[in-house]
């Protein structure tokens, strides 16, 4: 698609033309179904691999059809926009499904102007989500003009070198009344579910203390969230976060001290071993990718009470 002048009316007209062209050109017998359940605004740094991002959006659309608006942000002041479509044929079906998108290049200094541009481009009456891919959202107020346009903001704390500052920034967003998600929290779902099931089985009863061990020189944002989650769930227990071992930053093991000492360790990336006295069992973790994390977050468009408690 050719770059268009940045006029929202023109972009909307280009989108309409895109659908006319799709309907005309398609060789698919069942025709094309226009799919849209939300607006997904993706703010990404100029350095990001756009091919990879387009592919990722394409995959995400299968489960969360949306009007995607990709903001390529750099230091330069040079607004331009193009429209595109993402089409797929669901397995076993005969009708192609397509979702539409707009790519806008802009400088960070132009985000006020971009917000004005986005207003008519956001699909009316459907949820709108802002996904900030880079670390910039954690420092300063560049994104403030965009926040009132969306219901939910998704950030990724792992993009920031200082995990404590990341948690503070996410808490601040929540304090402002925004629905906020952090992919560093989303990453914990598998591990948290395992802890919950260990508790359910009665293996971890009367827990008095919890020790969380992390590798590397500092805890990750995920480890900080994890510690708070345990503290909120077990207000009587003594919860510590301790450094153990060099290498990459990650949660290495967890020891729940109750009627029985339960130890959860990760022999490898995909496995967790749960030990209680002489009983050992292994569970595999669902592989994590940006796509699976985003898909989980896009499934939750309302309040997330458990994460809210962690941010309190």
């Amino acid at each position: 698609m050719p770059a268009t002048l940045v006029d929202p009316e023109k972009i909307l007209k280009d989108l309409r033309n895109l659908w006319s062209d799709l309907a005309r050109d398609t060789e698919v017998a069942g025709g094309v179904l226009r799919a849209c359940g939300m607006t997904l605004v993706v703010a990404t740094d100029n350095g990001a691999d756009m091919e990879e991002l387009r592919h990722l959006l394409g995959v995400l659309m299968h489960n969360h059809p949306a009007r995607a608006i990709v903001l390529k942000l750099d230091g330069k002041s040079d607004l331009s926009a193009t429209v595109f479509s993402q089409c797929w044929m669901p397995f076993g079906k005969h009708q192609q499904i397509c979702a539409e998108g707009v790519e806008i290049s802009a400088g960070f200094s132009e985000l006020n102007h971009v917000a004005q541009l986005l207003l008519p481009l956001i699909v009316s009456d459907l949820p709108a989500v802002l996904w900030c891919r880079g670390p910039r959202v954690f420092s300063g107020h560049d994104f403030d003009p965009l926040l009132p346009l969306v219901q939910k903001i998704i950030v990724d704390g792992t993009t920031v070198s200082d995990p404590y500052a990341a948690v503070v920034a996410v808490r601040e967003l929540r304090k402002q009344g925004r629905l906020v998600a952090d992919l560093s929290w989303t990453k914990l779902t598998g591990l948290r579910e395992l802890i919950a099931s260990v508790f359910d089985e009665g293996t971890a009863s009367n827990i008095r203390s919890v020790r969380i061990f992390y590798g590397g020189d500092a805890p990750t944002v995920s480890a900080l969230y994890f510690q708070t989650w345990i503290e909120r769930a077990l207000p009587e227990a003594h919860v510590t976060l301790e450094q153990r071992g060099e290498g990459t930053r990650s949660i290495r093991s967890i020891v729940l001290q109750g009627d029985c000492e339960v130890t959860l360790t990760r022999p490898d990336k995909a496995t967790i071993e749960v030990r209680c006295r002489d009983r050992v069992r292994r569970s595999s973790l669902v592989p994590i990718s940006e796509e699976t994390l985003m898909s989980e977050e896009l499934s939750i468009l309302g309040p997330d009470p458990v994460f809210d408690k962690v941010l309190m």
Binding site: T189, E193, A196, W229
Partner: peptide
């Protein structure tokens, strides 16, 4: 009644 329950996210 599990303090770790998260019905929004756990299958």
């Amino acid at each position: 009644n599990n303090p770790f329950a998260d019905p929004l996210r756990f299958d």
